[in-house]
Computed example of a mutant assay.
Amino acid sequence: MALGRNRRRERGGDYWPGFVDALSTLLIAIMFLLTVFVVAQFVLSREISGKDEVLNRLNSQIAELTQMLALEKSGKQDLEDTLANLQSSLSTSESERSRLQALLDAGSGTSAQAQVKINDLTGKLNDEKQVSSRAMSQIELLNQQIAALRAQIAAVEQALQASEAKDKDSQVKITDLGRRLNVALAQKVQELNRYRSDFFGRLREILSDRQNIRIVGDRFVFQSEVLFPSGSADMNPNGQEEMAKLAAALIDLSKEIPSDINWVLRVDGHTDNVQMSGNGRYADNWALSAARAISVVKFLISKGVPAERLAAAGFGEYQPIAPGDTPEARAQNRRIELKLTER
């Protein structure tokens, strides 16, 4: 009759479906935020990597254009030096021609040698004028090429500045998005932990009246002596009775858990540090602890607990909960732990 009253009281204050709906909505929101963050990170990373390639190409073009500009300036300087020499030679030739012409005029045309020299100098002067004209044309062409190179360098620098500004803006966006997502995730994780605590609190309420069960955090601890004879993995009648109660509670609780929550009950076997005798059924404590965990799992399956919701593990004597080597400590370390977790 007390159990019937407890069940009527639980049905009257059944708040668990609301918690489960809130938990499902919370998980969907977290997955959506994580998806948005991953997509944003991927798109921005692609954009940044593309900008890095463009920047590298622009820097390479600037280096090539700078080198070409240096070469063009060097060629221009050589041509200007040649033009200066030609102009100096032209000035000297004109002076010499004027002097010879004056001598020719003074000699009234009687000096054939002076006339020949004048003709020779006149030819050289014409040649030098042609060379000077070609040099001037080349200098003009070089000036045009230098102006074009300077225009290209200015355009490249403008593109580089625009790319750097866009890259800085992208980095700011990524930082702001990460900060906001971290804040949102921290809030959602706090809510998720609160709902998880409520979940295990419900289990504590269901199993609080069971004898021979210690609740430690989110684990349910059975002493091995309650379930098994010494050195054996065959469950005794008292152990089967306790496990049957636990199986009934798990089956009742599983009906309230939505099918999209992937939970599992892990059964952990532990022993003390006393080594097994060589003539026993089990070679060592590892084998005994694993066999006991498997025995509990098989019994729960036989009572209707779904096999896909169960897992067995053996830890031997290597995870004691009581320090020391006293009989009391060994008794506490010989145990079966049941832990309900999300897979």
Rank of each mutant, 00 (worst) to 15 (best):
A2H: 11
N6G: 03
E10K: 12
G18R: 13
F19W: 10
F19Y: 12
V20H: 09
S24E: 05
L26P: 02
I28R: 05
I28P: 00
A29D: 08
M31V: 12
L33Q: 11
V38P: 00
V38D: 01
F42V: 08
E47C: 03
V54F: 04
N59H: 11
S60V: 09
I62Y: 00
A63M: 04
A63K: 11
M68G: 01
M68H: 06
L69Q: 14
L71A: 06
D78I: 07
L79F: 02
A84H: 07
N85S: 10
N85Q: 09
L86T: 03
L86Y: 04
R97V: 12
L104Q: 12
L104M: 13
D105G: 12
T110G: 04
I118A: 02
K124S: 10
K124C: 00
N126C: 01
N126D: 09
V131P: 01
V131H: 01
S137R: 07
Q145M: 05
I146T: 03
I146Y: 01
A147Q: 13
A148R: 11
I153E: 08
I153H: 01
I153N: 02
A154W: 00
A155G: 11
Q158N: 10
L160D: 10
L160T: 14
S163P: 01
E164H: 03
D167E: 13
I174Q: 08
I174V: 15
D176G: 10
L177K: 07
G178T: 15
V183S: 05
A184C: 09
K188W: 04
Y195R: 13
R196E: 07
F199I: 12
F200M: 03
G201D: 09
R202D: 11
L203A: 11
R204I: 11
R204D: 12
V216K: 09
G217K: 08
R219V: 08
R219K: 15
V221H: 08
F222I: 06
S224V: 10
E225W: 09
F228M: 02
S232V: 05
S232E: 09
N238Y: 07
Q240C: 06
Q240S: 06
A244N: 13
K245E: 12
K245D: 11
L253S: 08
S254G: 09
K255V: 12
P258A: 07
S259A: 13
I261C: 00
V267R: 01
D268Y: 13
H270Y: 15
T271E: 12
D272R: 03
N273A: 14
Q275A: 14
Q275G: 09
G278N: 13
R281E: 11
A283V: 15
W286I: 08
S289D: 07
A290V: 08
V296L: 00
V297Y: 00
K298W: 05
K298V: 09
L300T: 06
I301E: 13
S302C: 04
P306L: 03
A307H: 07
A312M: 03
E317D: 15
E317A: 15
Q319V: 15
P323M: 02
P323L: 04
G324T: 12
T326N: 00
A329P: 14
Q332T: 09
Q332H: 07
N333G: 05
L338C: 05
T341E: 10
R343I: 06
